[in-house]
Simulated assay, not measured.
Amino acid sequence: MKQEVTKTNIDILKKLLIFSVFMFGFGYALVPLYKKFCEVTGINELIRPDGVARNTEIDNTRVVDLLLDANVRDLPWKFKPLQSSISLNPGKLVEVAYEISNESDDLQVGQAIPSYSPKNLERYLKKIECFCFTKQELQGKEVRQLSVRFLIDPEIPEDLRSATISYTFFKIKAD
C-alpha cells in the first residue's frame, strides 16, 4: 500500500514538473509573441523605445496652429496652459505643459476630459502621454505642472490649419 502511494506521489510530482516547465516556457514565449502581435496589428507602433515617433515623417511644408484651453468644473482649482497657443508641423512630436493648483486646504481629486475643435481633429491627434489618462489628486494648496506629449498625423487634411485642444477637469470621488 505504501509503495502504491509513493508511486502515485512520484507520478503526480513528474506531471507537476512537466507542467511547470511547460508553463515557464509558455510565459517566456509570450514576450516575442506579444511583440509580433503588436507588429501585425499596429498596436503600440507609434513610439520606438527611444521615445521618438515612428512611421511618421515631419511635414515641414505645413504648419498647424493649436490653441490650448483649460477649464475646471466643480473643483476649487486653477488650471491653465503655460502657453496659450503653439504652431507645429504635422508629424513632429510636441510637449505642452499646464499648471494646476488646488486653491482649497483639502485633498481634491479630478479627472481631465479632452475636447477638440474641429471634431475630426481627434482622428489626427496622437497622444503619447497625457495627464488626462489618469485621475489627479492634489493636496490642499498644492501646485503641479502637467504635460501632454502628442503629434498631429501628417495625413491631416490640408485645409485644417488651426484647431483647439481643450481640457476640462471634473471632480471625481476619491477611492
Rank of each mutant, 00 (worst) to 15 (best):
Q3S: 11
Q3F: 12
E4A: 15
V5K: 11
D11G: 15
I12F: 13
L13I: 15
K14S: 06
K15V: 11
L16I: 12
V21L: 15
M23A: 13
G25M: 09
G25D: 04
G25S: 08
F26E: 01
F26Y: 08
Y28M: 13
Y28N: 10
A29Y: 14
V31D: 13
P32S: 09
L33I: 04
Y34K: 10
K36Q: 14
K36T: 15
C38A: 11
C38S: 05
V40K: 12
T41E: 04
G42Q: 01
G42W: 02
R48C: 05
P49H: 13
P49F: 11
D50A: 03
D50I: 05
D50Y: 09
G51R: 10
G51E: 08
V52Y: 08
A53K: 08
A53P: 06
R54S: 11
I58R: 00
I58D: 01
D59N: 13
N60F: 10
N60K: 12
T61M: 10
V63A: 06
V64M: 04
D65H: 15
L66V: 08
L67K: 07
L68I: 02
D69V: 10
A70M: 11
V72K: 04
R73M: 15
L75M: 03
W77T: 03
K78L: 04
K78P: 03
K78W: 05
F79N: 00
F79V: 00
K80D: 02
P81C: 04
L82W: 04
S84L: 09
S87Q: 15
N89M: 03
N89I: 01
N89E: 01
P90I: 09
G91W: 05
K92Q: 14
K92Y: 01
E95M: 10
E95L: 06
Y98P: 07
E99A: 11
E99L: 10
I100D: 06
N102E: 01
E103Y: 05
E103C: 04
S104K: 07
D105F: 14
L107C: 04
Q108M: 12
A112W: 07
A112I: 09
I113N: 08
P114W: 02
S115F: 00
Y116N: 06
S117C: 00
P118R: 03
K119H: 11
L121Q: 03
Y124S: 02
L125Y: 06
L125C: 06
K126E: 06
K126V: 09
K127V: 12
K127F: 03
C130L: 09
F131S: 06
F131V: 05
C132N: 07
C132H: 09
K135F: 07
K135V: 13
E137Y: 10
L138Y: 02
K141A: 08
K141V: 00
E142C: 00
S147Q: 13
S147V: 10
V148P: 06
R149V: 14
I152S: 00
P157G: 07
D159P: 00
L160V: 07
R161S: 14
A163S: 03
Y167T: 00
Y167K: 07
Y167N: 08
Y167D: 03
F169R: 01
K171C: 05
K171H: 10
K173E: 15
K173W: 04
A174E: 15
D175E: 15
